[in-house]
Computed example of a mutant assay.
Amino acid sequence: MATVPMSFILILFLSLIGKESSCKISGFCACSLDNININTIRSGRVIQGKLEWNVTVINNCNCPQKLIKLTCKGFQTVENVSPSILSKVGDKCLLIGGKELVKSTSVKFSYAWDSAYIFWPSESIIVRC
Rank of each mutant, 00 (worst) to 15 (best):
D91H: 08
S115G: 11
S43W: 07
S122C: 10
L16C: 04
C72L: 12
L14W: 00
I38T: 10
S106T: 15
P64T: 00
S82Q: 01
S21Y: 04
G74T: 11
I11Q: 03
D114Y: 06
S22K: 03
K73P: 03
N60L: 09
G74N: 15
S7N: 13
Y111N: 07
I38K: 15
K99G: 00
I17W: 06
L95V: 15
L33A: 14
I125H: 05
K19L: 12
C23M: 07
S26E: 15
R128E: 15
W53F: 04
S21I: 03
I58L: 15
I126C: 13
C93N: 08
S26V: 07
Y111W: 03
C31S: 06
S15G: 01
L95K: 07
W53A: 02
S122G: 11
V102C: 02
I41A: 13
I58A: 10
L14G: 01
L12R: 01
F109L: 12
S104F: 10
S32Y: 10
P5M: 06
R45M: 14
N59G: 05
I25Y: 05
V57I: 10
T56P: 00
N60M: 09
C23E: 09
I85P: 00
G27C: 14
C29K: 04
I85W: 00
Q65H: 03
N37T: 15
T40L: 04
I96P: 09
C23W: 00
C63F: 00
N80W: 00
N59H: 06
M6N: 02
I11N: 03
I47N: 01
